[in-house]
Computed example of a mutant assay.
Amino acid sequence: MIAVKRLDATEAALAVIDQLLTEHGDLMFYQAGGCCEGTQPQCFEKGGFFPRTNDACIGTIRGFEFWVDRDLFEYWQYSHFTLDVLEGFGPGGFSLETPLGKTFKVHYRLFTEDELKNLEPVQRNE
C-alpha cells in the first residue's frame, strides 16, 4: 500500500518555486507557529533557516524540505497541507517570494480515517 502524503502544492505555487530555484538555488520551507512571521509558510535558500529541535519535516516539494514548527505540528498533525501562492505580501516579509509581490499560503484539510492509517512518517529535527 502506498503511504499517504502529508504535503502537496498547487501549480501556481510550483511555478513560483521554479522561479525562486532559478534565482536562488536549492530551497527549503518553514512554517512557524506565530510571532513576527505569523503562521505563513516561509521559503528560504537551503540552509538559510535552522529548524529547532523536534520540528517536523512533513515532506518535500520539488525535493525541498517543508518543516513545521514542533508546536504547530502537534496541532495540525492530522491535516493535509497544500502549499499555494497568493498575490500580495504576507505578515513577515522574510520569505523569498516577497519581492515578487506574492506570499505562500497553506490550505488544510483533515485526513480521512483511512488516510490516517497509512500516513507517511515525519522526520524530526534532533
Rank of each mutant, 00 (worst) to 15 (best):
V16R: 04
D18Y: 01
Q19H: 05
Q19Y: 02
Q19D: 06
Q19I: 05
L20P: 03
L20F: 03
L20W: 00
L21H: 05
L21D: 10
L21V: 03
T22W: 00
T22E: 09
T22I: 08
E23C: 02
H24W: 01
H24F: 07
H24I: 03
H24D: 04
G25N: 11
G25S: 04
G25K: 02
D26F: 03
M28I: 02
M28F: 02
M28W: 02
Y30T: 04
Y30M: 08
Q31H: 01
Q31C: 08
A32G: 03
G33F: 01
G34Q: 08
C35N: 09
E37Q: 09
E37S: 11
G38P: 06
T39V: 05
Q40A: 15
P41G: 12
P41A: 09
P41M: 09
P41L: 14
Q42V: 15
Q42A: 15
Q42M: 15
C43Q: 06
C43G: 04
C43W: 10
F44L: 01
F44T: 05
F44Y: 11
E45A: 01
E45C: 00
G48C: 02
F49Y: 13
F49W: 07
F49I: 12
P51W: 08
R52A: 15
T53Y: 13
N54D: 15
N54R: 15
N54I: 14
D55Q: 07
D55R: 04
D55F: 03
A56G: 14
C57M: 13
I58D: 10
I58K: 05
G59A: 09
G59S: 12
G59K: 10
T60R: 12
I61H: 03
R62W: 12
R62H: 13
F64R: 12
F64W: 09
E65K: 06
E65G: 04
F66H: 13
F66Y: 14
W67S: 06
D69G: 10
D69L: 05
R70Y: 08
R70F: 08
R70Q: 14
L72R: 15
L72C: 13
L72E: 13
E74M: 13
E74V: 15
Y75M: 15
W76A: 14
W76V: 14
W76P: 00
W76E: 10
Y78M: 02
Y78E: 09
Y78R: 05
S79E: 07
S79I: 06
S79Q: 08
H80Y: 11
H80L: 08
F81Q: 13
F81N: 14
T82D: 05
T82A: 10
T82C: 11
T82N: 08
L83A: 11
D84G: 07
D84N: 08
D84R: 02
V85G: 05
L86D: 14
L86V: 04
L86Y: 11
L86P: 01
E87T: 14
E87D: 14
E87I: 14
G88S: 04
G88V: 11
G88H: 09
F89P: 00
G90I: 04
G90C: 02
G90Y: 01
P91Y: 03
